[in-house]
């Protein structure tokens, strides 16, 4: 399998990374280089093999239903590039 320019544009859009037009073709080449290399995985017979879910042999930990966190909007918003009254502020979102 390989990607073309439209696919690269589409996945860049999905990944929300602006890709200038002159970078599309080189990216096609780079991604196809990697994809050609991973193609060797098709040699492996994976019939009946379960995909790995976790390398850790243990049950999912669960916490109690107790409020132990939050209450510090200052800290939560301290790194915000733009904020007001403890809100994060972004360009107007049209719904």
């Amino acid at each position: 399998m390989s990607v073309d320019k439209d696919t690269v544009r589409r996945i860049a859009k999905l990944a929300r990374i602006a890709l200038e037009e002159e970078r599309v073709e080189p990216m096609v080449q780079e991604l196809n280089g990697i994809l050609a290399w991973v193609e060797q995985l098709e040699e492996v017979d994976v019939e009946g093999v379960a995909p790995l879910t976790s390398v850790v042999a243990q049950k999912l930990k669960m916490r109690d239903d107790v409020v132990t966190d939050g209450g510090d909007a200052d800290a939560v918003t301290a790194n915000a590039p733009l904020g007001e009254d403890h809100f994060f502020v972004v360009p107007k979102v049209v719904e």
Binding site: R16, A18, V76, T77, N79, A80, P81, L82, F88, V90, P91, K92, V93, V94
Partner: peptide, 16 residues
């Protein structure tokens, strides 16, 4: 949005 680099002159949220 919440931390880190934010581009200037974004026209809308997707552009940002």
């Amino acid at each position: 949005v919440r931390y880190g680099h934010r581009a200037s002159n974004a026209s809308d949220i997707i552009d940002l």
